[in-house]
Structures are given as C-alpha cells and as structure tokens.
Design a protein around this nucleic acid. Structure first.
Length: 710
RNA sequence: GCCGGUGUGGCGGAAUGGUAGACGCGGCGGACUCAAAAUCCGCUUGUGGUGACACAGUGGAGGUUCGAGUCCUCUCACCGGUACCA
C-alpha cells in the first residue's frame, strides 16, 4: 500500500483534472434541475438510499452512489431531465451514544459528520443536484414531518396503544434490541425486562391487503424483495375460535385462538398462551410459580430472533379448556415461544403436525395424536416420532372430518365452528402496526400535548415545527427531553390549562419514509408541493442495500399511501424500479489466530513476495482471516478518501463497477484497484493516440491550459 | 427458530439439460527496450505423464436422465432480515 504510483511518459493527471471538472460542474450547475422543468424532456428520478452521517464515507457508500451516478449520467446523455439529489438520514442512536460516551452534543456531532461526508462525496465526482440537499434533523425538514403526522392522526391513521419495550431496570432506560446482549443491557449489564408503555402507532395494517396485492405490479423490483415483503405481510387463512375454560373466572370465561390448521383440532394436546397474555397475567397474580415463569420470559426482551431461537419452555397453569368438538378437556400452558403480537396471543398445540408443538410435547410429555395420514400410510400403524408431518394427506382420528383431505377438512371445521357459534373463518396478517414512539432525544418530536382534561391534543399547525431544545445533557440515563426543566411544560392549546408535551420522538424510519418526496420541492413551505411531486414522483430507479428489503421499503410504501389519503400526493408506490446492491467485503487480519488476536487494518499489514503476510510495524506474522463485509469492529475497512487521494475517483469508481455484477458482494483488493488504475491510464493513452480533438478537448470556456485531461 | 439469498479455477465470473471454466483480472514465460513503463504474443482447474493423453472436478449426499453446474430430494457453510442499528 505504501509504494507510490510512479510512471513516466504521457499520463492522465487525475489530481488536476478531477477537481477542475468538479468545480466546473458546480459553477455551471450542470446537474441542477428546477422543481418544475419548463422544457419538454421526459423526467427521470434516480435516487440512492441517503446515508446516515456516521462520520466518514465508507466503501458501501462509494458503491451505492457510483451505481446511481452511472444511471443518472446515462439518462442525462439519453435526453432525460434527471433528478439526482442527496441528503442525510441524520437522526438516530449513534449521535446519542457519542453524546453519552464523549460528551459531544448530538447536533454538533451530526452536523460535523455531514460537513465531512459532503466534502468526501463531492470529491467522488458525482452528478448530484446539491441545491436539494436536506437533513432530517433540520427543523425545516422535520417540521413538515410533524405536519404529515398530524394529518395522519386526523385521518385515523395514527393511534395510541400499549406495547412492550426492552427495559434496563438499572439505567432506567428503554433499550434498542441492538443494545440487549445475551439478555443484558449493554452498558449496565443488568438483566433486561419487558415493560409495557403507551405508544404511538401508525396503522400500516389497514393497508396490508393493498401492500400485498400491489407487489405484483412492482415489475422492476427484484423478485426476492417482493417475496420477502410478501412473507413479511404474511396473509394467512384460518379460523378464530374460543375455548371455554372448565372453571370460568369472573372476568375470563374463554380463550380465543387463531389457527391456520383447524383441520388438526382433533390432534390437540394443549392450549398455549403467550407470557404477555391477559390470562397468563391473571394466573400469575395468584400463582407465584407462574409469576416466576412469566418473569423469566420477560427477561428475554422483545427480539423475535431471540425468542424464537430460545429453548422451548412452558408452565402448566393447572387450568383446562373444553375441546370444541370432543368431550374432552386439555391443559392450558404458558409458553415462551407464543408471540402476543401474532394472532390472538394464544394457540392450540397439535404436536403431530407442527414441529414446534412436537418439540414442546416431547419435552413435557404431552400426547401426540396424528390426525393427517400421509398418502399411502397405514392408519393402523402410523405414528409420529421426532418429525411432525406437515404435508398433505387424509384426515383420520377426527370424527366428522375423517376421510377428507386437508383443505376440505379446514373448510368443514370452520363450518362446524360457525354452526356451534364458537368460531369463524378469518384471514390473519403477520404484519403489525408500526410503533413509532422512541424515548430518545435525537429524533423528531411527536407533535402532541397531553392535557389532564382534554387528553391528547395535537399541536396546532401554526405552532409547527416543535423543535428540539438545544440545552440538554446526557449525564443521566433516560430521555433528556423528559428531564428538561422547561421544554415539556406548556399550556393546553384547547383549554389553556397547564399541560405536557409528548417527550417521545419518532422512529428514524419515519424520517426516511418520505424524504424522496421532499426532494422534489425541498424548499416548499409545506411537506411537498403538489406540482413538483406530481411531476417527479415516483422514483424511477432506487438503489440501495438488500438490508432494507423489508422495513424501510415497506414503511415508505405505506407512507405514500397515507400521504395520498391525506391529499399530499397522487400516487401510491414511491419506487417504480428498485436495485439492491451487494456489500463490499475485504480480507480481515489478526495478530494471532482466534479471539486472542487483535484486528489489524489493511494498511497495517504487508504482503511479502513469498505470499506470507506480516505486520508493517513489527514484522510479525499476521493471520489472514475470512473475506467479510467491511466493518469497523473487524477493522477490514479501506478508507475511500485514501483511495481517491492515491488513485483518483475515476479509478475507485471504475474498480467498483468493473469487478463483478453489482447485485453481488464484491471483494475490495489492492490488486483490483491497481488494475483499475492501469485501465484508466490505458483509456487515456488510447484516447490520446486518436486525433488531437478527441479526449482532452475542452469547451472553450474551460480551455485555460494544456495540462489536465491532456 | 422463521423468511429471503449465495456457493463453479488464484480472483471476478461464463455456460436454451448436450465439449465446464467464455471473457476479463492476476500470475508465469517470451518479444520489444541500455533498462523500465507501455504494447504485443503464448501459457495458466487439479493430479499423473516428456508427450499424445488419462483420471478427477461446479459446497456435500442421494436421485431423475443416453447425458446434470443446470431438474428433484435431503444436507452443510456463509450472508441479509427478524419489527427500537441504519
């Protein structure tokens, strides 16, 4: 990495050419387009996912913005009027972490990062319209977001309800899933608990059917993204039914269950409740052992990945329910793998035909009765051992459903439940409403006021934006907005009595769910100006990482629909074309194998002629690890600034484009960059060999010297 | 756990079910040069063989087929997501 690139002879001097052209583009406003173009060229809107200002540009950004820039320049060359803007996804947790760890104000930290990264992007030679730059932490942006929220609230698209958060009992703080490590708070080390809070939700589930069916029309989206969204929305057909308790309590007489397999009701062994289920809470109130089990489940936090991967555990409540068809009763358990958020928070377990139920039944010695006979199996001898049978077959051991196939039996079971008046067929969705409340400072304030007499009162439009106070400190845990001496104390806009501001801020996914629309009229004094947004939207080509396949893209699709419903836009789908790029990877290096070795940056190691790798400082041998996504923790990062300084932006961009198909992961290698550098030189020499008018010829207004491109 | 994806030479990657590795990068050898750079030519999956060639080979195990990188079943590894990282 240290050897300098030296050559004699004719040579493309990128150090002179790149800044000169970049300056010329900026001075001429080459990439600026008006909000409402007067010319008749067709429009093209190309957008890359805007960056979080974490400090410096990384190679993933270089890849993302290079890909978009190629599209933008191509479309411009093809005669389109191209909108290609850039901005900053500027609210978020890392700024607060910096504040707590280093005493830097989140705003200062964020704006300084933006300044650094803007300069880095500009050195990449991207054809961006910088007149449209926006940052989500700017009141000039988030004030309009508050207006959108209030419109959604008036339209019935926002509501308050209870939900569970990760609670650090020592720090007295809500934790993000990322901040829960092995069930403990990452700072305090305290065992995390689930805690219930009243929070704001956006009613994305209202649009579940539409968000699902419209996927078919997104024909310029990758199939795998549409598939992932389809599964995430998760439409299922089944039955909702009530199981009567054998000993009804004064307040609870039965338990509602949602199932996609009413055909297997005769194979039931247990009714299992989520630990957060009201009946589980009622049992726990009187039974210390049940309470202990529920408390144990609460220590798992809210992450589905953690809950579902945990060992299945249950607690027998001692209660029993009557079977809807059989004259039998079954035990009611509390089980750690039943999710309160899906269905009704209670399931009936049929171990023979569901693997999780089978694992649970084997662990606790519950009965396993097969009721679906696989084709060709012998009903007299068929049993289920360690593997649940989930395939098609013929129903048996099931009274009135015997001899039906699975699908017919589902219909028959639902008929019977309806006839008995204890259930009905129901379409269920996996998609949940979008909880947007965060107990954090560095986010957009939720513009409502809580009044003891009037309840929740929206902040009047003329009082927007509700801005964050700047004089906050992070020397104690919790939300600084809540601790602030004066900020939250206001008078009720409705009755004039003392009241309190909402101190929660929005999930940062809200900020990124409409920025693409704001780009069309970034200086408008309303969220979006209709004519520009109608002209430019939808985004013709959106480009970003596959990690956003579900949340960001689904929330944005919802937001467009909500903005249409509230009269802000005319369309429903924000992104007509989507491209998901692969990651940038690199070898990793350690001073020794395994966890004893410290990670080394690529420029700390030297490759020897014999193929071994050594530490540049000490000369000690270095262990070469796997090729992995670049990350700070593994130190396998290459700083784009260093590459651009040494080889030029065109080399970096050429390498990143030429190495492999853009949807795949690419490995960043020194040899590859060197090859790309040689290639740019070869192109220059080739062009130079043509007649003098070709490569370096510049427009008259730039023809100030004979160096540069020549 | 669940959902989605990936897996072919040293590397990026090609291959309507029909000669696996096109093309490129890198590497090696040669030409040119005082020398280098640049350019050009040749070789470059592995093993064995001077060679013609033989055998093996597309993460792994089975299967379908005259024939499988490609189709089917199972399986392994890795990556992304899993609703409060962005």
């Amino acid at each position: 990495m240290s050897e300098t690139v030296t050559e004699t002879g004719p040579r493309y001097d990128f150090r002179a050419a790149e800044p000169r052209w970049q300056t010329a583009w900026a001075e001429r406003g080459c990439f600026h387009v008006p909000d409402l173009p007067a010319d008749s060229r067709p429009k093209y809107y190309v957008l890359e996912m805007f960056p979080y200002p974490s400090g410096k540009i990384h190679m993933g950004h270089v890849r993302n913005y290079t890909l978009g820039d190629v599209v933008a320049r191509y479309k411009r060359a093809r005669g389109y009027s191209v909108l290609h803007p850039m901005g900053w996804d500027a609210f978020g947790l890392p700024a607060e972490n910096a504040a707590r760890e280093r005493g830097i104000h989140p705003a200062k930290w964020t704006w300084e990062n933006i300044a650094t990264m803007r300069a880095e992007l500009q050195r990449m030679g991207l054809s961006l319209d910088w007149h449209r730059e926006l940052a989500t932490c700017d009141p000039a942006y988030y004030g309009h977001q508050q207006k959108l929220f209030l419109d959604f609230l008036r339209a019935g698209l926002a509501e308050r309800k209870e939900s569970w958060v990760n609670w650090d009992p020592v720090d007295g703080t809500v934790l993000a899933n990322e901040q829960v490590i092995d069930g403990r708070g990452w700072r305090s080390g305290a065992l995390v608990e689930k805690k219930q809070l009243s929070q704001w939700f956006l009613r994305i589930t209202q649009y579940a059917p539409d968000l699902l069916s419209a996927l078919d029309r997104l024909d310029r989206w990758p199939e795998r993204v549409r598939l992932m969204q389809e599964k995430w929305i998760g439409r299922s057909e089944g039955a909702r039914l009530r199981f009567a308790l054998t000993q009804p309590r004064s307040d609870i007489a039965d338990v509602e269950v949602y199932t996609t397999r009413p055909d297997t009701l005769y194979g039931m062994s247990v009714l299992a409740l989520a630990p957060e289920h009201p009946l589980a809470a009622a049992v726990a109130a009187r039974d210390p052992k049940a309470a202990a089990f529920v408390a144990e489940c609460r220590r798992m936090g809210t992450s589905e990945a953690v809950i579902e991967a945990a060992e299945k555990q249950g607690h027998d409540t001692g209660l029993r329910v009557r079977h809807p068809f059989l004259d039998q009763t079954f035990p009611v358990w509390i089980a750690n793998f039943v999710l309160m958020e899906y269905g009704t928070g209670a399931i009936f377990g049929c171990p023979a035909h569901d693997q999780r139920d089978l694992d649970f039944a084997r662990k606790y010695g519950l009965r396993v009765v097969p009721v679906v006979l696989p084709p060709g199996a012998d009903p007299a001898h068929y049993t289920v051992a360690d593997e649940a049978y989930v395939g098609p077959g013929t129903i048996f051991n099931s009274g009135f459903m015997d001899a039906l196939d699975v699908e017919a039996a589902k219909r028959r079971a639902i008929e019977e439940l309806e006839r008995l008046g204890i259930g009905r067929g129901e379409v269920n969705w996996r998609l949940r409403d979008w909880g947007v409340s965060r107990q954090r400072y560095w986010g957009c304030p939720i513009p409502v006021i809580h009044c003891a007499d009037c309840g929740v009162v929206p902040v009047p439009d003329q009082h927007l934006p509700v801005t964050l106070p700047e004089d906050v400190n992070f020397d104690r845990p919790g939300n600084p907005l809540d601790h602030h001496p004066t900020w939250k104390h206001v008078t009720c806009p409705r009755c004039g009595k003392p009241a309190q501001r909402e101190t929660d801020t929005f999930d940062t996914f809200v900020d990124s769910s409409w920025y693409f629309a704001r780009f069309c009229s970034p200086h408008a004094n309303q969220p979006v100006a209709r004519q520009p947004v109608d002209h430019w939207m939808p985004v013709d080509q959106y480009i970003g990482g596959i990690e956003h396949a579900i949340l960001h893209l689904l929330y944005s699709r919802f937001f467009m629909r909500a903005m249409k419903a509230t009269g802000h836009v005319a369309i429903e789908e924000p992104f007509a074309g989507l491209f998901t790029q692969g990651m940038v990877t690199h070898e990793s290096y350690r001073t020794a194998p395994g966890p004893n070795g410290t990670w080394l940056y690529p420029d700390q190691v030297a490759k020897q002629p014999d193929g071994t790798v050594t530490h540049r400082g000490t000369g000690d041998p270095v262990t070469v690890g796997r090729v992995e996504a670049m990350s700070k923790s593994r130190r396998n990062t290459v700083d784009p600034e260093a590459i651009i300084a040494r080889y030029g932006a065109d080399t970096a961009r050429w390498f990143i484009l030429s190495d492999n198909p853009p949807e795949r992961d690419m490995e960043w290698t020194e040899a590859g960059v060197a090859g790309a550098y040689r290639f740019t030189q070869r192109v220059f020499r080739l062009a130079e060999g043509l007649d003098g008018s070709a490569p370096g010829a510049m427009p008259e207004s730039f023809g100030d010297d004979s160096r540069g491109l020549r």
